[in-house]
Design a binder for these strands. Structure first.
Lengths: 117, 117
DNA sequence: TCGTGTAGGGAAGATTTATTCCCTATTGAA
DNA sequence: TTCAATAGGGAATAAATCTTCCCTACACGA
């Protein structure tokens, strides 16, 4: 586990939220779970472009942050499912706002960046 | 200027938005500008905790991304102001959503992290 | 027995991002 | 003349994040 060398700055709400969903794959994972993909292996195949390990690490953090809940079925072969907690459900509002803005402005950022406005 | 070695993944709106506001200080800077702090030096003092250089770099990126507009006054000593563009105004919805969620759940993430829910 | 699937993790390295240090240039005030 | 303020940037380094490689363990089927 990596140990931060600088303290977290959580003085404003934005940074709290960023701490929870601000990483390369977490939004994708949360999105996939809401679409009904619950098992780690399936999530990895769904998200693609990244490895099993990466998904595992992100799921673990999401679980620590109370966004997802891990459910272990006592069967073999192993079966595990991750579901959104109520807290996880509540953060969908934020993801939706981000998605809406991004979709509305995608073309501006897709090609090379022009100087702006 | 740093040149990325891996391509941007902008296939979903969330990542587009994250590219634009997803950095350590950009949300703070945008927030300060909306509160009426427009000059680089003042922004640096307002945000605190970071250096002049950092603010400069972030402002430059925000300008390239069309979020803020730079206004140079032809006077001496130099005077420069940054203001939000209409596009910048529109992204406030996202920042507000993030802030609301974060404020509502701050206590959960302020101390040490408990295993969750 | 060997290869497949499941889920999980340690350790090292690559990549990206943030920060620091030290420069430029200008004007006015001490 | 020297120091403060203004705004800006190059280069190097520190820190954080992401990724890859190689392990564990279990059960089933060929």
């Amino acid at each position: 586990m990596y140990e931060r060398k600088t303290p977290d700055h959580l003085e404003c709400g934005i940074k709290v939220t960023a701490k929870v969903i601000g990483s390369k794959w977490k939004p994708c994972i949360i999105d996939a779970i809401t679409r009904g993909v619950h098992r780690p292996g399936a999530l990895q195949r769904e998200v693609g472009l990244t490895s099993r390990r990466v998904i595992q690490l992100q799921l673990k953090e999401l679980e620590m942050h109370g966004i997802v809940e891990k459910q272990v079925f006592p069967v073999l072969p192993q079966k595990v499912e991750y579901h959104l907690t109520p807290l996880g459900q509540s953060i969908l509002d934020v993801l939706n706002a981000m998605n809406t803005w991004g979709e509305a402005n995608r073309e501006r950022y897709s090609g090379e960046l022009e100087p702006a406005s």
